[in-house]
Design a binder for these strands. Structure first.
Length: 238
DNA sequence: TAAGCGACAACAGGGTGCTA
DNA sequence: TAGCACCCTGTTGTCGCTTA
């Protein structure tokens, strides 16, 4: 983000409305000194939520987008996800599951894709796997998973798969941050995905009945907390 | 033995109050 | 309106305990 341009923009909008910094601060529910800081190019020291409030006060819209080396960022973001999907597919196939990856569907008005759709033919078990390298929005993640579970049998039928029951596993990258996010909404997870990693693994190895669970798996390229030595904060500028 | 989780420390950065 | 100093909060890494 160009903080200087952002600050000049806010100032221009504020003056157009003939507001003082105090007026804007009141409307955006921040202090006057913060408005001054932002207008002078200090937006990079303010949270996006506050910047959004300042924009909202003007009726403006804040858009944040990260660009890096053309499409390289998309490939980087995809790498962790792809690594987890690969890990899941290996685990499933090793235990006799047939797997389809990135299964797109269009049923009525419902469109989307399932990260991994697996069938255990011996038991007639269909497994819908949602893979998340990071869990940014728990509610949205669970809502998307519910929808895919509902549509799973129909999607499987389209591919000639016959199933008697549907199971779901949300696979998340192992890490303290993801675990804490899940823990923070423990009651929600207990309702939607009560099974945990050990049960999920047992189910994958020997599917019986059905399961709705959460499985933490390490990303091979990721350094997990316990293996790191020392802190990783960026050094302060000199 | 691995998974899960609570507690704690360290740190960076956000936001405010005060004042020139 | 601008700038400084301070306090508070959130995040992350680590340790150690419990449980299956």
């Amino acid at each position: 983000m160009d903080s200087v341009r952002f600050g000049l923009s806010i100032r221009a909008l504020r003056r157009r409305l003939r507001w003082t910094q105090d007026t804007l601060a009141h409307r955006a529910r921040v202090s006057q000194s913060l408005i001054a800081r932002v207008e002078l190019g200090g937006a990079d020291r303010v949270t996006p939520a506050v910047l959004r409030r300042i924009c909202d006060a003007h009726g403006a819209r804040l858009t944040i987008r990260v660009d890096w080396h053309g499409e390289a960022l998309d490939r980087l973001l995809d790498a962790d996800h792809a690594s987890l999907v690969e890990r899941v597919v290996r685990e499933l196939q090793a235990n006799g599951w047939r797997c389809l990856v990135e299964v797109t569907f269009a049923i009525g008005r419902e469109r989307g894709s399932i990260d991994v759709l697996a069938l255990h033919e011996a038991t007639g078990t269909l497994l819908v796997v949602e893979v998340k390298s990071v869990i940014p929005d728990i509610q949205a993640t669970l809502a998307a998973l519910d929808r895919k579970v509902r549509l799973g049998p129909a999607i499987a039928r389209d591919r000639g798969w016959r199933s008697e029951r549907v199971a779901t596993i949300l696979v998340a990258a192992e890490g303290r941050t993801n675990r804490r996010r899940v823990q923070a909404v423990g009651a929600t997870f207990a309702t939607h995905l009560p099974a945990r990693s050990a049960e999920a693994r047992t189910f994958v190895e020997q599917p019986s009945g059905t399961i709705h669970g959460l499985w933490f798996l390490p990303i091979s390229t990721q350094t997990t907390g316990r293996h790191r030595v020392g802190r990783s904060h960026a050094p302060s500028p000199a």
